[in-house]
Nucleic acid binder design. Structure first.
Length: 943
RNA sequence: GGGCGAUUAGCUCAGUUGGUUAGAGCGCCACGUUGACAUCGUGGAGGUCAGUGGUUCAAGUCCACUAUCGCCCACCA
């Protein structure tokens, strides 16, 4: 690949998916080198809609972002690169929640780092997915009445590429719908030219270094797919099966083998000694080449060295001893089938036993099976059991539980089969991958997965990389007429008289190179120099071994550096009750439908905030609903703020020093900056969910519920007060939108565009929230006293509302109130307008005084620490109700006082607890005592 | 056979290094169209943080054991 430019593979426009996602397809075929700020954002109605309509907003915004090149890393970014390689979805894939999960988290990180000024690159692509894709095309051929064998390899590959061209773009369109800010100009496919070259180069290097070998070994065979698969592609399932005890006759001085035909019932007539073996797979008897017993098992000692006769075939097989045999299990004697069982294979090698393969590629019995040749493995099992019965050799049938290997792809029982395959000797690579994590060059989040990773790599076995498929990277080895093998370098000419190996590589072989092959490796490209090693590998923990560990091994070995510094593993998405989503169960949630209904942001926010790192997530539809409502809430906050800004945006005023601000102003600014600090800390610690929840709670419970309501009052004040309020409304909302942008990209951009109309731009550029700076906290706004005072004010207001509610005062009615503020009197007097408006107290009838000698009677009273308030709810006070209410409060106050007093009476607490904790406890006790005293007075006054 | 995770309100989940009275959403009860929002507002009810023991002035949080559920790894015929 040429050095200075990035090769762009033109995107294929798929006519079948035009419709819903049509607007997301941008077939430009060239790379945007920089962001183009002259591209205008989509047109929008002058007035904001009454409700947030994601369907109207998302597609045009994405289109704009992509067209303007905002997804590409900018060369002039002030901070270093931040790179994520996408976990490439299968080209055959259809968007599911697993995709939605990784897109949410990775896009969140990328957008966040991009806003922080990092040179953020999220490199997308797709995987050719050998088996999955080949199966799709085979299905297609079947429907045409033909097969891959009939059309031949070349035609089959042509058809598969055709299929890929037609459907391969679908999944990337669907990723776009989620808002994925991938740099599509760098999109890759595992079978494209550059990556194929990387695969070839990697193979060649491993081959030359002796890490790839070929040989006949026992492999996991998937009969329906007719290919070998790796150990990882076998899933074990506990099943209740039968275990059969079968006795083999022994050759003795009196008996020299069967005289009658197999099946006659007299086959073993005359035999005097027997040895009984136990098996769960009777058909493998046909491949037995020995019977093994434990070396110290006296029961069988007299048989060792003798020969048993194999049922049906009459083969004489030796009785041997081997440490592998467990005396306690089964009959104590084990039939040894070296070509069809992993343990038996080892025993066979130790004793130099013949290895007889009794099966064809489709798991039917071959000629070695004698009378059973041609039968399917399970038919043969039934047949041979019946015959054993006939011959009186089936001693016992017992129920048994065992774990059965199932083909992850094919779904049928895996058959251990002896066959010629290619392997990678992984130990040397595994050691490098282990060291990278052990030495902290790469860390895994959550940390507990490090143990899993270590355990797997420490016990790793060689990796079977050859597949008997056609769709994939063909093994770059040529078999020569003289029987030798040649593995040419990609630049070398192909051996003229050689024949290329027919097998292809395991899909995970090419995936293992993904973080660097996508950047141009093995060439020394600018992209590789700039963006490798990558930053974070984010993916589900279910592919830790399949993919992550292999990238670590390949990356460390081939590039000499660990391919990423952080591995972030997310959990699996389950249904609302923790069940795995499955089509047969009918509990599958389709992300496309969710987005159609509630918008991409609602889905993203739910996925990001519903759980905790590395933990499985139970997706509750009500949470998506809540997230949708949150989006609408933000939309309407924005609508309100814009409506109140008037011409402030054209003539912006700064937020003045704290002395010129109201208590509420100082409170919200202090809370806002505390939020910025918290979110910053949480994001840096990969606690994205907690960060999102913080923003949510702040925006809804503090900004909307309180400051926005207060702003309505402050905007009735003088010009200066109004300007300050507008400045704060704008600043806090605009900042919170930026804070939330990585979580809810569409909504925040849409709202932000209204807040910052392009017509305002002085530089003629169209700005995007995507490239606005991520907000950071400023200590100057820290106002702990303002927060404390505001809390008191808020508590007073809530208490008044509470009393009003209890006495069923109509919401619209203005009431009278007397507030006895004690040391806080001045503060309450200053906030009288807020108390009046927010608690609906008639300002003409709101008395705020420091002390009150004569306590009123027949009023509702409320007590907050040393503060009291009285509501003379004329004619509504029921003394019994009031007495009960106060008595209940008194009870809690009493327990509060006694608990705190006891704590402070404990010398150990006062001595050992930190000073601020003790101090806080003292203040709380004082306040509780004051409240208790007031409550007693009030109760007394009711007598 | 090893290893890991979970157990907190009716449901689904948070709870950063131990530190006031354990939080949210949904659901529930009562009230409410006051000009941003009924996809909403106001107030409220609801939890011995699975159990037992320990460490500590202080435990949902740390330690040990137990129970239940789930997952991963492992060659038992």
């Amino acid at each position: 690949m040429p050095g200075s430019e990035t090769k762009v593979v033109p995107r294929v426009v798929n006519p079948l998916v035009l419709g819903k996602t049509a607007g997301f397809l941008i077939d430009r075929g060239y790379c945007m080198p920089t962001h183009d700020m002259s591209v205008a954002p989509p047109a929008r109605p002058a007035e904001m809609d009454r409700a947030y309509e994601p369907q109207q907003v998302e597609q045009p915004l994405y289109d704009w972002w992509e067209r303007a090149g905002f997804f590409a890393p900018r060369d002039d970014a002030p901070n270093p690169p931040f790179v994520i390689s996408i976990p490439p979805p299968n080209v055959t894939g259809e968007l599911h929640l697993g995709h939605a999960m990784f897109v949410t988290l990775e896009d969140l990180m990328i957008r966040w780092r991009r806003m922080q000024g990092y040179r953020a690159l999220w490199l997308p692509g797709t995987d050719h997915a050998g088996i999955a894709t080949q199966s799709q095309v085979e299905k297609l051929l079947r429907s045409e009445g033909t097969s891959r064998e009939q059309v031949g390899r070349e035609e089959f590959l042509r058809r598969t590429w055709e299929w890929k061209a037609k459907y391969g773009g679908e999944i990337t369109c669907q990723l776009r719908r989620l808002g994925a800010s991938c740099d599509w100009s760098r999109e890759r496919f595992t079978l494209d030219e550059g990556l194929s070259r990387a695969v070839h180069t990697a193979f060649k290097r491993l081959y030359d270094n002796g890490l790839i070998y070929r040989g006949a070994y026992l492999v996991n065979w998937s009969p329906s797919l007719s290919t070998a698969v790796s150990d990882l592609e076998v899933e074990y399932e506990t099943r209740n099966v039968s275990i059969w005890y079968v006795r083999y006759p022994i050759i003795t001085a009196d008996w020299d083998g069967p005289a009658a035909d197999w099946g006659s019932g007299n086959w073993a007539a005359g035999a005097t000694e027997w040895i009984t073996v136990a098996t769960t797979r009777p058909e493998t008897i046909l491949g037995d080449t020995a019977v093994a017993v434990a070396p110290d098992d006296e029961r069988f000692a007299h048989l060792v060295g003798k020969y048993a006769v194999l049922p049906a075939l009459g083969r004489r097989i030796p009785i041997i001893t081997d440490e592998y045999v467990d005396k306690e299990f089964g009959s104590g004697a084990v039939k040894i089938t070296p070509a069809h069982d992993k343990n038996d294979y080892e025993v066979g090698k130790r004793h130099d036993l013949p290895m007889i393969n009794i099966m064809n590629k489709d798991a039917t019995i071959n000629a070695e099976g004698g009378p059973y040749a041609g039968q399917d493995r399970f038919d043969c099992r039934k047949a041979i059991l019946a015959d054993l019965e006939t011959e009186g050799m089936l001693v016992q049938t017992a129920p048994h539980t065992m774990s059965v290997g199932i083909s992850q792809r094919g779904g049928e029982v895996i058959e251990p089969l002896l066959s010629e395959q290619w392997f990678v000797r992984v130990k040397p690579m595994a050691e490098m991958a282990l060291a990278a994590v052990q030495e902290g060059r790469t860390c895994i989040i959550p940390e507990r997965f490090e143990k899993v990773y270590f355990h797997w790599l420490e016990n790793i076995e060689d990796w079977c990389i050859s597949r008997q498929l056609w769709w994939g990277h063909r093994i770059p080895v040529w078999h020569m007429p003289d029987g030798s093998m040649v593995a040419p370098h990609p630049d070398e000419p192909l051996p003229a008289d050689g024949v290329q190996d027919p097998d292809v590589l395991d899909t995970w072989f090419s995936s293992g190179l993904w973080p660097f092959s996508t950047l141009g490796w093995p060439e020394d490209t600018p992209d590789l120099r700039t963006f490798y090693p990558t930053s974070v590998m984010e993916t589900g923990y279910d592919i830790l071994f399949f993919w992550v560990a292999r990238m670590m091994m390949m990356g460390c070995y081939l590039t000499g550096v660990e391919p990423f510094h952080t591995i972030y593993l997310h959990g699996l998405v389950r249904d609302e009750h923790g069940r795995k989503m499955s089509k047969s169960y009918g509990n599958v949630v389709n992300p496309l439908e969710v987005m159609d209904r509630q918008g991409a942001d609602a889905l993203r926010f739910t996925l990001a905030t519903s759980g905790t790192p590395g933990q499985d997530l139970n997706l509750n539809p009500q949470r998506i609903e809540a997230a949708r409502n949150f989006a609408n809430k933000i939309w309407n906050i924005t609508r309100f703020v814009i409506g109140k800004l008037d011409d402030w945006r054209e003539n912006r005023t700064a937020i003045p020093a704290a002395v010129a601000l109201t208590l509420s102003d100082r409170w919200i600014l202090s809370r806002y900056h505390r939020l910025l600090a918290d979110v910053g800390r949480l994001m840096e610690g990969y606690n994205f969910g907690e960060a999102g929840r913080h923003v949510h709670d702040f925006l809804w419970s503090e900004f909307a519920d309180w400051y926005v309501e207060i702003a309505k009052v402050q905007l009735e004040g003088d010009a200066e007060r109004q300007a300050n309020t507008r400045a704060i409304l704008f600043t806090v909302l605009e900042g919170a939108l930026r804070l939330l942008h990585p979580f809810m990209p569409f909504l925040t951009e849409a709202a932000w565009q209204y807040l910052n109309p392009a017509s305002n731009a002085t530089d003629g550029a169209h700005h995007t929230i995507m490239l606005a700076a991520y907000p950071t906290a400023d200590d100057d706004h820290d106002a702990a006293e303002a927060e404390a005072a505001f809390d008191l004010l808020r508590e007073l207001i809530v208490s008044i509302r509470n009393v009003r509610n209890e006495y069923k005062v109509e919401a619209a009615r203005w009431v009278a109130a007397t507030v006895v503020g004690g040391p806080h009197t001045a503060m309450f007097q200053e906030q009288a307008a807020l108390i009046s408006r927010l608690a609906r107290v008639d300002d003409a009838k709101l008395d705020i005084i420091a002390t009150l000698d004569e306590k009123p009677r027949h009023v509702a009273a409320l007590v907050i620490g040393e503060i009291e308030a009285f509501l003379p709810l004329a004619g509504m006070i029921d003394l019994d109700v009031e007495r009960a209410r106060l008595a209940k409060e008194l009870e809690t106050a009493e327990s509060d006082v006694s608990r705190r007093a006891a704590r402070l009476a404990n010398a150990n607490f006062v001595d050992k607890a930190p000073e601020h904790v003790v101090q806080r406890e003292r203040e709380a006790l004082e306040s509780a005592r004051a409240a208790l005293e007031r409550l007693r007075e009030r109760l007394a006054a009711l007598e």
